Simulated scan of single mutants.
Amino acid sequence: MITRRDFLIGGACVAALGVAEALRPRTQITLMPQQPLTNLVPKTIGPWTLGEGGDIVVPEIPGSLTDKLYADTLTRLYINTKTGEQIMLLVAYGQAQSDILQLHRPESCYPAIGLAIGSRRNDDIALGGGASIPAVALTAGEGIRMEDIVYWTRLGEFLPRTAGEQRRNRLETAMDGIISDGVLVRASTLRMGPEASPAYDRLNAFLAALVRAVPANSRPGFIGTERAKALVTRI
């Protein structure tokens, strides 16, 4: 005998099936050009130039989380030819949108290696003409070693600043049946002691110069289509 409870359970199963089907991605959208990041990111960015030795090669560990989740990574040290100041750049690219950027957000990975987050704020990297990138500025460190960091993430056409925004953006794209690529762009610099002022403005200026130095047809891969179009009209 079929009871009312059976109907409720059956209805719930059908509803779950409908949601699962709606969330099943069907279309891959890729904004990043299919070239190695080392070819896309200029070696000279305004007064900043790639340090001696070129790209920093981080050994790949087969089966590691980074190996599984990122299609390409770029790690470089840039030196200001006028002041001698140094900035570390990390770009990590994933072909399929997932939790990769959340797992590798500095708020998560720095504490995991014993470096506490001292401060965090939302920031905007001004590109000129009113265009900007929604970013995050934070400081991580222990003792006298302080690392100032500015970064942004792009997932599809979204640039989420928090894990909550990222989950919401992923749901929106999944509901549209889309699998998107994603990228994390992070710049950081070291300062000795908490008494010195954070270098957020310097990092913002470097990242803005980086975006402007990237060829126009490659910028959507870093900042999304609309911002890339707006930047072209404003430069």
Results as ranks from 00 to 15, higher is better:
residue 7 F to P: 01
residue 105 R to M: 11
residue 30 T to Q: 08
residue 116 A to N: 12
residue 180 S to L: 02
residue 162 T to P: 02
residue 100 I to T: 13
residue 6 D to H: 13
residue 184 L to F: 02
residue 64 S to K: 00
residue 68 K to A: 10
residue 176 D to I: 10
residue 33 P to N: 07
residue 58 V to Y: 07
residue 146 M to I: 11
residue 152 W to G: 02
residue 10 G to D: 10
residue 136 V to T: 02
residue 13 C to G: 05
residue 91 V to L: 06
residue 14 V to Q: 09
residue 75 T to C: 03
residue 168 R to A: 14
residue 121 R to S: 08
residue 8 L to V: 10
residue 234 R to D: 09
residue 160 P to Y: 01
residue 102 Q to Y: 08
residue 20 A to L: 15
residue 117 I to K: 03
residue 224 G to R: 01
residue 71 A to H: 08
residue 125 I to V: 10
residue 148 D to E: 06
residue 13 C to N: 05
residue 145 R to C: 10
residue 173 T to A: 05
residue 182 G to D: 01
residue 49 T to K: 12
residue 20 A to R: 14
residue 102 Q to S: 13
residue 137 A to W: 05
residue 31 L to V: 00
residue 78 Y to F: 15
residue 181 D to H: 07
residue 78 Y to V: 00
residue 182 G to T: 07
residue 219 R to E: 08
residue 12 A to K: 12
residue 3 T to E: 08
residue 186 R to V: 00
residue 48 W to M: 02
residue 234 R to A: 14
residue 196 A to V: 13
residue 201 D to L: 12
residue 157 E to K: 07
residue 49 T to H: 11
residue 37 L to F: 02
residue 76 R to S: 02
residue 50 L to P: 00
residue 205 A to Q: 10
residue 47 P to K: 09
residue 230 A to K: 04
residue 136 V to W: 03
residue 43 K to Y: 07
residue 122 N to E: 14
residue 95 Q to N: 10
residue 95 Q to T: 14
residue 128 G to H: 05
residue 110 Y to S: 03
residue 59 P to N: 07
residue 117 I to T: 00
residue 133 I to N: 03
residue 75 T to M: 14
